[in-house]
Design a protein around this nucleic acid. Structure first.
Lengths: 355, 355
DNA sequence: GTGATTCACTAGATCGATTTAGTAGCCGTC
DNA sequence: GACGGCTACTAAATCGATCTAGTGAATCAC
């Protein structure tokens, strides 16, 4: 920090320009002079000032991530920490760092993006938790800030996307439950304002209708444990209660499973349950939770790589599709209870007869 | 970004210096000139270039946090996301941002600190997960980087600390268990290289010996679920198995409880269990987990505030002690099983007689 | 009424690196 | 031996803000 390029120049008896050329491996200095400069730089313990570099090159050497979450919800989200670890895996190979902003209040999100963009604190941002008709797309293109989105927005977006299809996992979960004889399969979804809330619901609905079943047992929640409890309570209070519930994340599944057990239902004997995320605690629940394992680490790694490419102008602009999450079978799913199966059998005969 | 202070100066018909004075509210420009400058700046949409400011003021306007964790462990830690949210609560009020680095490999940690310090990317760092004889203290003072530590290191440290005493909660947990009649109370600790691993163990031991009980049922683990399982297995395999286990975090408690149940033990009927962290899922376990609720949000908020004070030279150098975590009673703890209580009674009589 | 002081403002240096334009010296060539 | 072309380097501008020194004009004191 204290030692600058001028100090090196003086010590080596050359001009600042020569030092710059030597240190950056550019042509224009003779070999012995270059060596002398390199040696003195090393001896003096010179390190480049990122601040000077930034000003000169009009680059921040940093990428941004804005997380919009209520503060108290953040601790229970298994996604972001792993995702960020993935981002770092890419960044540590380059001379970039991650600037993280948490927007805990609704209005704070836009302010956060402006804060990152205005002063030129970052060279680009990763857009996560994409929402239906997401206003941030327009905001960022207005700000002229390069970006990469996690999954493709449902509005026209100038930014490339790194995609991980959550439909595949949900479809697998529903099909798994159907193969166990379930016909009344409910879904507790996250906020439908989020694209991943929507796509999970859609996948659930499609899998059911493709099998000729009704997709009517839906309850919207908010990805939180209390929300999961409330949604589960609504579903179980129905006259035609589900025999299986596909939750949009592990936290809601955990809370829902706990609620069902507290009300005398055996899981999976009376009710099968699946989650999403494969949180580490999920396999230690009682029963262990059948869930869907995504790969947030890879997602972070690739998103950062794509954004770097975007910033450096080497990215071609195309989307990248990652390997989809896979179903992890554990003890929270089992064959449909016999008496229910019998009833379902009756019904299906009746409905078949009715056609 | 495109519009600079020179543009404003030209448009307002004054010098760059005058614009700077006006925009920063310094004396030296007349009132009407100041207004004119402010207006033109607003009209042109000028925002200060953080890069130029940084170079000029030799400040980064950013604080750093290095998280050293294996990538796959990060998703299950309820501490950091909340902690970071707390840090942001403080930073968003100032013109600072958080630069986050994740060091997933052992050697990467020092590199991370150097990366933050060398280029002058941050003005200070928060030192978390303080270890016994922590080498980072010397590293950071060598680098001349201001810092704040979470809890006071056990080596002389020039940095102020924000402290949250985890002994209080553990002591409360042990006393709670003793009040339920337990005498064979084990502890599954985290790595003893961490100060919070040590202090929790010490608190457990002290509480037991203060009550005249032996603190011999200790098993070291690593804060992970598999580690919790292994440690629990070792404890339960002892001839004189514990009737209660105090775990150093919720994840290990969850895994341990699950292991005990899988091996035919009723929790809390045969074995009482307590955790630490009050992770959101903990109250939805079966049974709900008795645990210790810290306040990582407040910790982050105060640590950031202290570091900012440190950086700006307004901090007095003293430590700050936050309110200690509190015990949250749930269903995983209950009175000691009768037959065990009888045996314990016998023993205590014998040992008393032996004195 | 003259010297001192204050006010409002400007010119230019500065932070640390990169880059452009230019120069001195050397070699080769016709 | 004059010129072109090359290498190895230097001086100075540049990025965008801030800070220092200084200037001209107005005001004040005695």
């Amino acid at each position: 920090m204290a030692v600058t390029i001028s100090d090196v120049a003086r010590a080596a008896g050359v001009s600042r320009g020569a030092v710059s050329l030597a240190l950056n491996g550019h042509a224009g200095v003779g070999n012995q002079t270059r060596q002398r400069i390199l040696n003195t730089a090393k001896t003096l313990g010179w390190t480049p000032s990122l601040r000077a570099k930034s000003l000169r090159s009009a680059k921040a050497y940093a990428l941004g991530l804005v997380i919009a979450r209520e503060a108290k919800l953040l601790g229970s989200d298994p996604f972001f920490p792993s995702f960020i670890a993935g981002v770092e895996m890419t960044l540590e190979k380059h001379d970039y760092t991650l600037v993280l902003t948490v927007a805990t209040e609704p209005g704070a999100e836009e302010r956060s993006y402006r804060k990152l963009a205005d002063g030129g604190r970052v060279d680009g941002v990763i857009l996560s938790d994409v929402r239906h008709d997401d206003s941030r797309i327009a905001l960022l293109s207005g700000l002229g800030l390069p970006a990469v989105t996690l999954n493709r927005p449902d509005t026209p977006s100038p930014f490339p996307a790194v995609c991980m299809d959550d439909a595949v996992g949900i479809t697998a979960a529903v099909e798994h439950l159907m193969s166990l004889g379930h016909t009344r399969i409910a879904h507790v979804g996250g906020e439908q304002a989020y694209l991943h809330g929507r796509s999970r619901r859609r996948a659930w609905g499609n899998a059911l209708t493709a099998a000729g079943l009704d997709a009517d047992l839906f309850a919207e929640a908010d990805f939180t444990a209390p929300g999961g409890v409330a949604a589960t309570a609504r579903l179980l209070a129905r006259k035609n209660r589900p025999t299986a519930i596909v939750y949009a994340n592990d936290l809601m599944a955990t809370a829902g499973q706990s609620y069902a057990q507290a009300h005398g239902l055996n899981v999976p004997g009376d009710l099968s349950v699946t989650g999403y995320d494969n949180a580490q605690f999920a396999r230690y629940l009682n029963p262990p939770l059948t869930t869907i394992a995504a790969d947030p680490l890879a997602w972070g790694r690739e998103a950062a790589a794509m954004l770097l490419g975007q910033v450096k102008g080497t990215h071609d602009g195309g989307d990248l599709v990652l390997r989809p999450p896979r179903l992890v079978l554990r003890g929270s799913t089992a064959v449909v209870p016999k008496h229910v199966a019998a009833v379902a059998e009756d019904r299906s005969q009746i409905s078949t007869a009715g056609i």
